[in-house]
Design a protein around this nucleic acid. Structure first.
Lengths: 98, 98
DNA sequence: TATTTAACTTTGAAAAACAAAGCACTTTTA
DNA sequence: TAAAAGTGCTTTGTTTTTCAAAGTTAAATA
């Protein structure tokens, strides 16, 4: 038998980052405010988790405008998609014995 | 849409506690040392996570002997089984849209 | 002009994770 | 028989992570 948790990605230990990724897998672009409302977070908290995901190059930011008002949206990268899938596979393998 | 992470159990945010539970779901009794080796943890770290799970009444301790040598094992409780299952269901629901 | 909204950054506090050491006891080994 | 090693912790202290709150810049709205 081998260590069942070794293949889990540390970045996805956080429920919030997990939530962000799960939303971005199905919506190819989501705004900062939508994420904030959906996950019920403060600005700072969300921003810092998004930053962690961005550092890992799992998500990408798009700074745009609606009229002349700033509008920031996020999308998942190919690397992010792959890492998230690998994490889910590891999770599944861990519990499939059930 | 509703908050996708609201139904995740905070206790299972930890990869280690997740690993312990996943092992206890399939083996109805596991020793301290087996858990330690399998999850590659220090004594103190494992003991404290086991303590968290015990406080939540998700696992139960059995202090016994092998011959006259102490032997401590752990097993999952019905409550633990239920909570773990609920967590997995929440996880699945979160990512099933995929 | 004053307030509000967007999307942060910074600050600081609280919580969690973790390794290392200590401990009481027993068994094994030299 | 003395020393070493194993079991299963607890304690201590450090590092890491998480978060909320406040501050910020710029634009929109009342």
């Amino acid at each position: 038998m081998k260590n069942p948790i070794a293949d889990l990605n540390k970045i996805f230990d956080s429920r919030i980052r997990l939530g962000v990724m799960s939303m971005l897998v199905v919506n190819n672009e989501i705004g900062f405010n939508d994420l904030k409302k959906m996950l019920e977070l403060t600005d700072g908290n969300l921003a810092s988790h998004l930053n962690t995901l961005e550092q890992a190059e799992f998500i990408k930011v798009h700074k745009g405008f609606i009229g002349r008002k700033t509008n920031t949206t996020y999308s998942i990268t190919p690397l992010g998609k792959q890492a998230f899938k690998a994490h889910l596979d590891a999770l599944e393998k861990m519990i499939k014995k059930l």
